[in-house]
Simulated scan of single mutants.
Amino acid sequence: MSQAQHSSIRNRLLKALSQDDFALLQPHLQLITTELRQPLIPSNTPVKQLFFPEVGFSSITTQGSGGRVETGLIGREGLIGAWPILLGSDRTPHDQFVQNAGEMLVITTEALCAAISRSASLHKLLLRFIQVQITQTSQTAYVNASQTIDVRLARWLLMCHDRIDGDDIRITHDFLSLMLGTQRSSTTLAVQALEGHRLIKAQRGKITILDRETMEQVADDGYGLPEAEYARLIEGA
């Protein structure tokens, strides 16, 4: 299998690396095809591999007596599994799985840690990504605690839209309710509200974004902070 070339990489975090830092990772990157709901990082289990999404994205979820709720999304802007490894642990209490199928570049934890030990600039950039993830998680907590389901739905759809090509998001109402931590009936009403304003089109197993600009207005300050932090810390580095 030929090695991934920096010029053809779609993952934005890898593209932000210097040529020298990318060269440290390049021999260890293996392209894999992912499937919907495929487990990537099981909770409370040593992280053996990390994933740079090229196409598609993953969900980070937490499980409790009240059910499963999504606390984060990672797509081609980032690295799945990095949080515990970069902060000196070997596992996480959260599950991470494929939310939108596609392709990912996988690297072993051992290889990534060896590369980090050789490059302070690589380590610094990956830690900056962790700050972006912390910002996203904090923003999710803020939105879930203070905003209506319509705002939460608009924000979530925008975040998904950021991580795909095109305007079609593959999702069922049942699974959308799980990700938002709401009853299916409430999710359905929120979908119908956005559809009534011609912001989206809902079909069986699919939601199509029709008017992103107005969706951002609906999401208001619920959307944009982690995205701005990414631009500042990663793309502006």
Rank of each mutant, 00 (worst) to 15 (best):
A114E: 14
T108V: 06
E77R: 05
Q147A: 14
S59P: 06
S59E: 10
T140R: 13
L87Q: 13
P93A: 05
V143D: 02
Q63L: 13
T137I: 14
L125C: 08
T140L: 13
G78P: 02
L153Y: 01
A101N: 07
A114D: 12
E77A: 01
M104Y: 12
Q131K: 15
T61H: 10
L86Q: 05
A120W: 12
L73D: 01
L158K: 00
I130Y: 07
L105E: 04
I60C: 06
T140A: 14
G81H: 02
I171L: 01
A154F: 01
T137F: 11
W83K: 14
G166S: 02
I164R: 01
T140V: 15
L87C: 10
A82Q: 08
V132M: 03
H123T: 15
Q139R: 13
V106W: 06
D168Y: 02
L157M: 10
T140C: 09
G75Q: 04
N144C: 06
I74V: 09
T109C: 05
H94D: 11
K124L: 15
T71A: 07
Q96T: 14
L158F: 00
V132Y: 04
I130M: 05
L73P: 03
F175L: 05
S121F: 08
I74D: 01
I134D: 09
V69R: 09
H123K: 15
S177V: 04
Q147R: 11
G67I: 03
W83P: 10
R68Y: 04
C160H: 07
S177Y: 01
Q63M: 12
I116E: 13
H94Y: 15
S119L: 03
C113P: 08
R128D: 13
V143W: 00
H94S: 10
S138Y: 09
H173P: 14
D95W: 08
D167Y: 05
A145N: 10
S146D: 11
